[in-house]
Design a protein around this nucleic acid. Sequence first.
DNA 1: GAGGAAGATTGACAGCGTGTCAAGCTTGAC
DNA 2: GTCAAGCTTGACACGCTGTCAATCTTCCTC
Lengths: 214, 214
Amino acid sequence: MSTSPPPDGRARILDAALRLIARTGGADVSMGEIARAAGLSRQAVYLHFADRAGLFVALARHVDERRGLEAALRPVHEAPSGVAAIGEFVAMQARENPGLWAVARAFEAVRRRDADAERSWQDRLAHRLAGCRGLVDRLAAEDALRPGVDRDTAADLLWTMTSLRMWEDLVLERGWSAARYVRHVTAAILAAIAREGAAGVSPRRSTRRAGRSR
Amino acid sequence: MSTSPPPDGRARILDAALRLIARTGGADVSMGEIARAAGLSRQAVYLHFADRAGLFVALARHVDERRGLEAALRPVHEAPSGVAAIGEFVAMQARENPGLWAVARAFEAVRRRDADAERSWQDRLAHRLAGCRGLVDRLAAEDALRPGVDRDTAADLLWTMTSLRMWEDLVLERGWSAARYVRHVTAAILAAIAREGAAGVSPRRSTRRAGRSR
DNA sequence: GAGGAAGATTGACAGCGTGTCAAGCTTGAC
DNA sequence: GTCAAGCTTGACACGCTGTCAATCTTCCTC
């Protein structure tokens, strides 16, 4: 939570990388470009990070701090029921994913070649999965879990169906609006893993954010 | 369908690339490696394909021919009902995806930088989407479409939930067996887009292929 | 058999990105 | 004044892509 006016080299590099990646779609930003954007020499970057992969691993953590990850999840925890929590979870994805997407893209490209990046990836994967598992447990505790679907399966399904990739497919590729995404993905998830009657039929208060459709 | 014993240069290159990509996980195969694997000089590759992206676009077509795409889809078309057809569709994914995955990975990496590759990608995307649309129409014709879900939405949902990415998440990342994948993904899809009673409760004959769980 | 076109080969080169090295500069603390 | 931190400049090795030019082999045709 350190938002100081004069960011030191390391933070300046990370911020610059973040800006750059978000702007270009996270494709191929080079170390030189990042350095230039940070107002430093290329070598300065290597003084702070061992290599490209190291920078991206650090970047992933940095992103979590910049956006309040905990704060974003609060509505999920405070939801009155498991079903509502899942709705909030999807809504959160719709809110956060646009800003996360480019970084994730870049990160995913780097993890294929670097063991550290891969470990870091697996960490976050496990973390998100644990969150899903928690939601499923809550559903189960309320006896709202769909019969015939065990907890592990439900958690994995919830996990994929709320993944950045699914969001990318529907919103970026198919041009769904955020509202449409929230509405139908929530419904689909609940249909898949929640008891029949459990789904709140009319979405009480979906995301306000419009989002253009294609 | 031309399986000639002496494949000419072009085909030899494509086959070599395919082998190589499948073996290495599709990561970073270089033009030089492909050439060497094909038993040709690096320049020979450039005589057949304009550049890296061009090679991959051709490769995508080549893969479709090598595996009988139409043949693989036959069970889907011949299924007795829309619901059954969707089950067959998922089963086909489970059968074909392991061989397709690496190529798709490599292709996806290339499309970000090349207009031709991107166009080719969009083509296949549209093609698969049309297939999904057909399945949804069939469902609708049988009055088995879930109320409250319009055809477009259902088609898009079917399309993402049968995507290579979802398969990758569940099978590769989460270690699901093929049978588990078919069973639960089919169920989830039907729950999401089909009328309540429509889903055949017990999977009649799922994939025989075991697939190790993690 | 001469001529040619198609398909390959060898070797060299420019351009770009990564990662490393060495030497030197600036600034602030003690 | 000295010392360490943080940064800079410049050069370099290495690997990959794409391009060029010259040469060779084969096989087909007249």
